[in-house]
Amino acid sequence: MTAVVEPPNPAAMPRPASPRRRRTLNLRAERLVGLTIVVVLALAFIIVPLVSPVSSSDISAMPLAPPSARHLFGTDQLGRDIFVRVFEAGRIDLGLIVVSIAVAAFGGALLGLIAAYLPAVGRAVISRITDATMAFPYIVLVIALAAALGNRELIPGLPRGAAAISIAIMIACWPPYTRLTMSRAIVLRERDSVVAARVLGYGPMRILFRHIGPALVSTNLSYAATQAVATTALVGSLAFLGVGIAPPTPELGRMMADSIALLPIAWWAPIIPGLVVLVLGVGFALMADSAGGRNSR
């Protein structure tokens, strides 16, 4: 009785003593910093609009005022306070991104887990569908779907256009998780602990969720963070293509797009929302640990 050899686990191998060792510890710190950035921003997005004395649609202030003590980020062309708008917009954008990717990741991983236990035919079908969807260029897919689904209020309560973007992201994002999960699960299936569980009579569902599942969480999470980076930058730019959440709901990309022409006289109007998108993206990138030093040996 020979067990299938697990692929060598780099984390478990003895690490050569090298000056690079410090970098590995920095890596942990990096991911923590990234997570902190995202969490702090998320909290700010929720809290600031709630406690701010100024409403985001209040147009009583002087338009195009530079940042000051009263209006920390200045005002836009309609006299609305940019500080409040930016945080409210951030809440909508971040919520959209996180929910869409989370659903895509969860659904995709689930599909991958199930596929790992199907007979070859079922697996082949799912593989084909996954590959076909992945063959569509990600951004083209998101833009096309979001444009097609348009500016309507698909889900009551959400701003118009939000559901379209969300669905577009979900459809574009799910395939990698299925592929990752499926291949890993197939390998893990042969592991001794899983074999033992099966011999003991545990049903496939239980094996999937309690034995194989948890081992896959970290890979999927880290991939989700990678996708979040690209998606954040993308969502921030969608408004430039005429796609996106309809006004008057504030949205970071839209705030940028609407005030482009004002760049020479009121630089704060387009650039500050962009900076928020940047910081958010950097936070996700640090969480994903794929940018920066990790792969540079």
């Binding site: 993308l234 990309g253 940028m256 797009a257 993206g281 990138a285």
Partner: peptide
Amino acid sequence: VRVFSLIGLAAPGALVGLVLIL
């Protein structure tokens, strides 16, 4: 290089363009 990589990866194209124009 690390910082540059992070910013380049995460910055929306529109922002970079706007900053450059400015």
